[in-house]
């Protein structure tokens, strides 16, 4: 059993070191002889066992004695542990490729491939707003009315919904990937601004009015809002200049923003978005499946691929 363990360990180490490459060869020979029901004649088993026992002997006679007597059993234990850990590593790799986290979709536990958890970070929504405490499994689009939100590519078989906020770092990180996904896959696309860092609903009202008055021209304006300074975006004077630059009628947009009907609609939108149980931005729904936090592009894309990678 120790030969199999050694073969795997030394094969990996052998990538970096010639000495371990030789040992891997010996281990391979030993494994081959064992599976062909012949004794391992390289002395490899003894070599490994003796070196391990000697190291233990320098620390604890009891441990060395135990290992020396039961090393076959200990080898089995390590083999089982290695199989289990290999399973979890493969599973983790699979999850990371598909969901951007080793632990599964939207799971924020430690992941060696993403040690800082960048793929799960969100701009958290204050629970005092009446939202539920963070729980990935509750996040859903079921029963949520999105009809009043900016939408494009209506009629596509796939639908992408991005709930984000203009001044949130993690939404900004995901935004470009979502645009690329929508462009490449030509999906139905719904954008919802959720004012995480804003006292009022000004930015949502602004987006709503531009979309209402200018339709498709909204999307270029929206792209631009994700590139401007995060502080200035909430200052009406600065926004007015942007509107002018886009050749929008500033008075008309501001009149719409101040219209009580707009306030009512935006309030309705926010309440509908809260029904998704979202706890942070960005939250992306692809065909109803929620992705919380900025995932790598391949995660979004593989959801829409027929097969995982294409």
């Amino acid at each position: 059993m120790i030969c199999i363990l050694a073969l795997i360990v030394f094969s990996v180490l052998g990538i970096f070191s010639a000495t371990h490459r030789e040992m891997a060869k010996e281990a391979l020979d030993c494994v081959f002889r064992r599976i062909t029901l012949r004794p391992c004649n390289t002395g490899f088993k003894e070599k490994i066992k003796s070196r391990l026992v000697a190291r233990l002997l320098n620390r604890s006679v009891f441990m060395a004695k135990f290992f020396n007597r039961h090393y076959e059993l200990v080898s089995w234990v390590f083999f089982v542990l290695m199989v289990a850990s290999t399973f979890y590593v493969v599973k983790g790799g699979y999850n990371y490729y598909l969901y951007g986290s080793c632990n599964g979709l939207n799971q924020s536990g430690f992941c060696a491939f993403d040690p800082k958890g960048e793929n799960n970070k969100v701009s958290e929504i204050n629970p005092s707003c009446g939202l539920e405490v963070k729980s990935e499994k509750n996040v859903t689009l079921e029963g949520v009315d999105l009809l009043t939100l900016p939408t494009k590519n209506i009629g596509s078989k796939d639908t992408v919904v991005l709930i984000g906020c203009y001044s949130c770092d993690y939404t900004r990180k995901a935004y470009a990937d979502i645009q690329k996904l929508v462009r490449e896959k030509k999906t139905n696309y719904v954008f919802a601004d959720f004012p995480v860092k804003e006292a009022s609903n000004y930015s949502s009202e602004l987006g709503y009015c531009v979309y209402k008055e200018y339709g498709e021209r909204f999307w270029a304006f929206n792209d631009y809002l994700f590139t401007v300074d995060k502080v200035l975006i909430y200052q009406p004077d600065y926004v007015n200049k942007i509107l002018e630059n886009f050749n929008f009628d500033v008075n008309k947009v501001n009149a719409c923003i101040n219209d009580p009907e707009t306030k009512q609609i935006i309030s309705y939108q926010v309440n509908e978005l809260k029904k998704t149980h979202l706890y942070g931005t960005p939250t992306v729904f692809i065909n109803g499946k929620a992705f919380v936090g900025p995932k790598p592009y391949r995660v979004y894309k593989s959801t829409l691929n027929k097969f995982i990678i294409f």
């Binding site: 002395g43 003894e46 070599k47 003796s50 070196r51 026992v53 000697a54 190291r55 002997l57 320098n58």
Partner: peptide
């Protein structure tokens, strides 16, 4: 006992 074990242990220790 395979005396290689003794030699290897002496070397390692």
């Amino acid at each position: 006992l395979d005396m290689h074990q003794i030699a290897l242990m002496l070397d390692e220790m």
